[in-house]
C-alpha cells in the first residue's frame, strides 16, 4: 500500500465547481440550445391552451373551459420543461464524448465524477432558467395557481428533486449514445410520458389498459404532486410515491452513469 501524498489528493468539490463553470460558459456561448429547450414546452403550452383548451376544458366537467384547462395543463408543461432540459443534457454529454475533451479529462489527475457532476449542476441551472420562463408564459396565458410562498418553495424543491433524478438518467443516456443524434432521440420517451399519464387529460377518460399504465407510471404521481402544490390541494400519497420514484431514478441513473464513465473506450 502506498500512502497518497499531498499532491495526489482529490478535490471533487473544487473540480465539480470548475466543470460547472465550464458548462455555464458553454451555455452562454451556445444560446440557441437554451432557446430551443425553452421553445418546445412554450409551443406545447400555447397549442394546448389556445387550440385544444376550449374543448378539453369543457371535458374536465367544470364550467371553466379554456381557463380551467390552463390550470390543468400547466403542471404537465412544467414537467415537460424538465424533460426538454434533460434532452439538452444528453446532447451535451454526447458532444463531449464525441470530441476528444473527455479523453483529456480521463488522463488528468482530477476527481473523475466531477466531469459528470459538472453536467448535472449545469443542467440544474439550465432547468431553473427554463422553468422560470415557462412558468411566466403560463401565467401570461391564464394559469392561475393558488399556492402561497410556502407552496411555491415546495414546488421549487420538488422540481429540483425531479430534475436531479432525470438529469442523472440523461447523463447515462448521453453516454450510451454513439452519436449526438442518438442522444437527442433517446430521451424522447421521457418527453412523451406526460401524455401517457394525467398530464393533459384525466386518466379515467382513457381505455383500460392505457389507464392502468398511466396510473402506475412515475410521471403521473409527479404531475399530481405538482398540481396539488400549485393549486393548494391536499397531496395525498402522491408526494411520497413521486419522491420514491425520484430517488430510484436518481440512484439508477447515477450508478449507470458512473459505470459507463469508468468503462474503457475501445476505439
Amino acid at each position: 500500500m502506498t500512502t497518497p501524498s499531498q499532491a495526489l489528493r482529490f478535490h471533487p468539490l473544487r473540480d465539480s465547481a470548475t466543470m460547472l463553470r465550464r458548462n455555464l460558459k458553454r451555455m452562454v456561448r451556445y444560446p440557441s440550445m437554451t432557446v430551443t429547450l425553452i421553445a418546445m414546452p412554450v409551443v406545447f403550452l400555447l397549442l394546448f391552451v389556445y387550440v385544444l383548451g376550449g374543448t378539453l376544458g369543457a371535458g374536465l366537467g367544470g364550467s371553466g373551459g379554456r381557463a380551467e384547462y390552463a390550470n390543468y395543463v400547466a403542471p404537465a408543461i412544467i414537467l415537460m420543461t424538465v424533460t426538454a432540459t434533460i434532452q439538452g443534457t444528453a446532447i451535451s454529454i454526447a458532444m463531449d464524448m464525441a470530441e476528444g475533451i473527455i479523453a483529456r479529462f480521463r488522463t488528468m489527475h482530477i476527481a473523475r465524477v466531477s466531469v459528470l457532476t459538472g453536467h448535472v449542476l449545469g443542467s440544474m441551472v439550465q432547468a431553473a432558467i427554463s422553468l422560470t420562463v415557462v412558468t411566466a408564459v403560463a401565467l401570461l396565458v391564464g394559469f392561475r395557481p393558488t399556492a402561497g410562498l410556502g407552496g411555491w418553495l415546495a414546488v421549487a424543491g420538488f422540481l429540483a428533486a425531479v430534475t436531479f433524478a432525470l438529469v442523472w438518467l440523461a447523463v447515462a443516456l448521453g453516454q450510451v449514445s454513439k452519436s449526438v443524434e442518438t442522444a437527442s432521440n433517446l430521451p424522447m420517451p421521457l418527453v412523451l410520458l406526460p401524455f401517457l399519464g394525467s398530464g393533459f387529460v384525466p386518466t379515467d377518460s382513457m381505455p383500460t389498459a392505457l389507464r392502468w399504465f398511466a396510473e402506475y407510471q412515475p410521471f403521473t404521481p409527479i404531475i399530481e404532486t405538482l398540481r396539488a402544490l400549485l393549486m393548494s390541494k391536499p397531496l395525498g400519497p402522491n408526494a411520497w410515491i413521486a419522491l420514491t420514484w425520484c430517488a430510484l431514478i436518481a440512484l439508477g441513473g447515477y450508478l449507470w452513469s458512473k459505470r459507463l464513465y469508468a468503462r474503457e473506450t475501445t476505439t
Binding site: 499532491a7 495526489l8 473540480d15 470548475t18 463553470r21 465550464r22 460558459k25 458553454r26 456561448r29 451556445y30 470530441e99 476528444g100 475533451i101 479523453a103 483529456r104 479529462f105 488522463t107 488528468m108 489527475h109 482530477i110
Partner: peptide
C-alpha cells in the same frame, strides 16, 4: 501517473464552444 503526464492526442481535445483562453483557464483550474 496521471499527475505526472500530459497527453495530446490525434483528435484535438479542446472545447470548441469555449475560447482559447477559456480552455487554458479551465486546465489551470483543474
Amino acid at each position: 501517473v496521471r499527475a505526472a503526464i500530459g497527453v495530446t492526442g490525434q483528435f484535438s481535445a479542446v472545447d470548441n464552444l469555449l475560447t482559447g483562453r477559456d480552455n487554458l483557464r479551465l486546465m489551470a483550474d483543474l
